[in-house]
Write a protein that binds this DNA or RNA. Structure first.
Length: 589
RNA sequence: CGGGGAGUGGCUCAGCCUGGUAGAGCACCUGGUUCGGGACCAGGGGGUCGGAGGUUCAAAUCCUCUCUCCCCGACCA
């Protein structure tokens, strides 16, 4: 039996000064974790115990659909060169040299290793499908680790990879993971939601994220209370309300208007007596991209037009141009537009006709909300002047139209028209149809029924183990501490004798703890010679969902059972304590 | 990488501006009194003040450099 007096549970009265979010404060105070360096944490007794319960659940559910492997974290550089990611990953990849000077790195994900095994071993369609997973540490040199366990540089991940003969097979593997993840998070007692996720630059591939709503999260999710629509903000769309175009003025050709000192959208709209919805917002950006032929880095202007009241969604933009962008500096703006910021517009510049072709010319991306609009107002590329009567496609020719608009809360759902909400959330799992990316780059092939070489299609699937714990703490805490769902708590029940010097109290507590343990409950007996207040405070702090208080009422044959989450207290007879918990936890001994 | 903040016993912090050789609360150890929501009394242990260099008779305090950590941003399979 676990006796608190002999355990290492270093609880703190005060949270460390550098902790901001609830889960960070409480996990440190409760003695679950200690920090070693930025984004690197040690798990102490309680933390590890909870951790083990989570991994056991993950393992059990994953074993239903796949096979567990264990792969090295230390990788040779060559492996990552093969997939092309050694350069791509940049500084997020931990790099080191061995004693011979050979370049190595620490795995931040294991597509390469898994694929290398597959390509060496898989020969025939008869060996497919395969689902391989592991629960193993991952290393990422994050630019900014933060929020305790929420974003760290070393963490435990359940990562799984599927190999199928065709897209229909991948659909099945994907679905299996979707269902397994739901089972895992259900069992962990999390209130989560599944959202459509950004499928990245390639597009067309399915991806879902499993999210837990919490203000501590780093992701924004858009969801609809009216239907089941839910998506990451990076991916979300909404229905636009119709907005009337202005009537053409004069002969309908672009018309120069004097707008002295009017630089912002709001100022110009007010000055001209129109709505920002009839205005074009011009965003000047630069993309640093690699020239296909010379291999040198070169920058290219990316100009984005949005409706005046809309905001750019950077993830969508990055997807559209398949590269990262940054705002143009003053000199770059001057060079392209020949005008100071505040009066920028699309007229008078030769735009690339195609994203791939004309790579020497700047790109003009126009948000879909402007497609089909007419007689808009934009900057004239001349200080103190704007242009009226601008119609996309007629007065200027976009390189491409794209959905670039950030959804804002309250906009109508595309499916059902009800207003959308936006919440912050933490991502606890992500499933992704990889397609042929690694099969292709690393040369994975098997023979099909006709003896012909085909590329297997892959999927990858990840769960952040510590994020399950973090999300659970964020989901259930108050000023005194937190409570975990019984399935992932370090102990299910703490038995707290109010005074261990009272022999009757002490022996009843011992007896109850023993009987609960014998019935299969995970119990810790707080046998410390401490005042009751200390024991109650600690019990409330450390995440154990149930407490049995053994005190004065033993003389009447009862003890108290306290439910941490609701603070509900109930007198239970000593004799019936095991049955009581069997009912509470829905379990038969 | 840009901006901001912080490093002083295990934890939370004061002292720094105005240099004079380190303090409080909690935690810990011993003894006693207590015992249903972080007790009280008495005694005690523990700190090269993140590091290096400089100024000075004298540096936690002033100056320079550096390391680390936190927050915002950029970034983020």
């Amino acid at each position: 039996m676990h006796r608190w007096s002999g355990l290492f549970i270093p609880t703190l009265r005060e949270a460390p000064a550098d902790a901001e979010v609830a889960s960070h404060k409480f996990l440190v105070r409760a003695g679950y974790i200690r920090q070693l360096a930025a984004g690197i944490y040690s798990y102490l007794f309680l933390g590890n115990r909870s951790f083990n319960k989570i991994t056991a659940i993950v393992r059990e559910e994953m074993d239903r659909i796949g096979q567990e492997l264990y792969l090295p974290a230390l990788h040779p550089r060559e492996l990552w060169e093969e997939s092309g990611r050694y350069a791509l990953m940049g500084e997020n990849l931990f790099r080191l040299k061995d004693r011979k000077g050979t370049d190595m790195c620490l795995g931040m994900t294991e597509e390469e290793v898994m694929t290398s095994i597959a390509l060496k071993e898989l020969r025939s369609y008869k060996q497919l499908p395969q689902i391989w997973y592991q629960i193993a540490p991952k290393f990422r040199d994050e630019p900014r680790p933060r929020s305790g366990l929420l974003r760290v540089r070393q963490f435990m991940m359940k990562d799984a990879y599927s190999f199928d003969i065709d897209a229909a097979g991948l659909d099945v593997s994907y679905r299996k993971h979707y269902d397994a993840y739901c089972a895992i998070f259900d069992r962990c007692g999390l209130k989560y939601m599944v959202v459509e996720a950004d499928s990245g630059a390639m597009g067309g591939k399915e991806s879902h994220e499993f999210m837990v709503r919490t203000p501590a999260g780093e992701d924004q999710i858009v969801s609809c209370d009216g239907c089941n629509y839910a998506a990451n903000l990076e991916k979300a769309t909404s229905k636009l309300e119709a907005w009337g175009d202005l009537a053409p003025e004069g002969d309908g050709k672009p018309l120069l208007v004097h707008t002295p000192g009017q630089k912002t959208i709001e100022d110009v709209a007010k000055f001209l007596g129109v709505s920002p919805k009839n205005k074009i917002k011009t965003l000047a950006l630069m993309a640093e991209e690699k020239d296909e032929k010379s291999g040198k880095m070169k920058s290219r202007g990316i100009v984005v037009l949005m409706r005046g009241d809309h905001q750019l969604n950077e993830a969508k933009l990055n997807g559209a141009v398949a590269t990262a962008t940054r705002p143009m500096d003053e000199a770059e703006i001057k060079a392209l537009f020949k005008s100071p910021a505040g009066y920028l517009g699309p007229i008078g510049i030769e735009w690339a006709r195609d994203l791939k072709k004309d790579s020497d010319k700047p790109v003009l991306l126009v948000d879909k909300a402007l497609e089909g609009r007419a007689n808009l107002i934009a900057g004239a590329n001349k200080e103190d002047y704007h242009l009226k009567n601008l119609t996309p496609g007629k007065d200027f020719h976009p390189t491409a139209y794209a959905d670039l608009r950030a959804v804002t809360a309250g906009e109508a759902c595309l499916n059902c028209g009800k207003p959308l909400r936006i919440d912050t959330a933490v991502e606890i799992g992500h499933i992704f149809k990889l397609g042929y990316r690694y099969s292709e780059s690393m040369g994975l092939r098997v023979l099909d029924q006709n003896g012909k070489e085909v590329m297997p299609i892959m999927g990858c699937y990840g769960i952040g183990i510590e994020r399950i714990l973090t999300a659970a703490v964020e989901q259930g805490n108050d000023e005194n501490g937190f409570w975990l769902p019984a399935a992932i708590a370090p102990f299910e029940v703490v038995v707290a004798p109010v005074n261990v010097k009272d022999e009757v109290v002490k022996s009843v507590a011992e007896d109850i703890a023993k009987r609960l343990e014998a019935a299969g409950f995970d119990v810790v007996l707080d046998d410390r010679d401490e005042r009751p207040g200390v024991k109650f405070k600690d019990a409330d702090l450390v995440g154990i969902p149930f407490r049995v208080t053994v005190g004065k009422k033993v003389t009447e044959g009862t003890v108290e059972v306290v439910i941490r989450s609701t603070r509900e207290v109930r007198d239970v007879t000593i004799a019936a304590i095991v049955e009581h918990f069997q009912q509470l936890l829905g379990r038969r001994g």
